[in-house]
Design a binder for these strands. Structure first.
Lengths: 134, 134
DNA sequence: CGGGATCCAAGAGGATACTG
DNA sequence: CAGTATCCTCTTGGATCCCG
């Protein structure tokens, strides 16, 4: 099923992958979705599962995922408060993408790191001759 | 094949999807890769294929993809210059991920847009009562 | 043609303090 | 517990001009 070019242009996307990366491309979104794949999680659970994320950032990314209809936010009116995040039905549809990303990451992490390491050493050795080389 | 937790921690990643999104998560990277899937492209070809990207941004994103070993940069020493970008063998391995993202985007673009539209109207109607609702 | 260099505006993101 | 609010910094990204 193809999406018409007009519709894509009208909404600012010129390519379908652009829309997808807009949904899951946030710095922490894919990781959040990964952890929600295994079931609903509370706010502080996610904080612990995602070292490095700040409270503010986690909140912001969760808000965007909620706005896009990917996750559901369940508030229990009690003291102390309890909020649970879970994938919506729509969010479940993106699970295969996350799973494939995880699979690729696991299989190629070493390649990524060695490529970066190599690039770093070359950068210090050879300052700038992007045009003159080769 | 699993990656050990120590290795992930050592390199700053706590989750395999984090590594993947680090590679393709740039604003234009997934779109660039999408266009390179169908064959090598020259710099200005990519510019035309990706409306909205600036020259500077295209250059920067291409550099990062090159650094990570995803794409190859072939320079033809001639006047005027000619540079062709293509997927490396490593880059080819990520094609299924891009394809799945495109598939998902095509199938769910409408859902995304309607969710955002809904969120926008609700935001103007109901200012802020995230805790008091429900 | 395919960039690099520079300047500047906007947004992402961190730290800290406070709250229902 | 699960945020919000504020301030401040650093990075992203656009515009423009120049170069091999």
């Amino acid at each position: 099923m193809e999406v018409s070019r007009d519709q894509l242009l009208h909404n600012g996307y010129h390519c379908a992958v652009e829309a997808t990366i807009d949904i899951i491309g946030g710095k922490w979104k894919s990781v959040i979705l990964y952890h929600l794949m295994s079931g609903k999680k509370r706010f502080n659970e996610l904080r612990k599962l995602i070292p490095g994320v700040t409270q503010r950032m986690l909140t912001l990314q969760l808000r965007e995922l909620e706005r896009d209809g990917i996750i559901h936010r369940e508030i229990y009116k009690q003291v102390p408060p309890k909020v649970e995040y879970s994938l919506s039905d729509f969010g479940e549809s993106i699970v295969p993408v996350i799973e494939l990303m995880m699979k690729w990451g696991n299989e190629h992490l070493d390649d990524i790191l060695s490529a970066r390491e190599k690039a770093e050493t070359e950068a210090t050795e050879t300052p700038q001759l992007r045009y003159t080389t080769k």
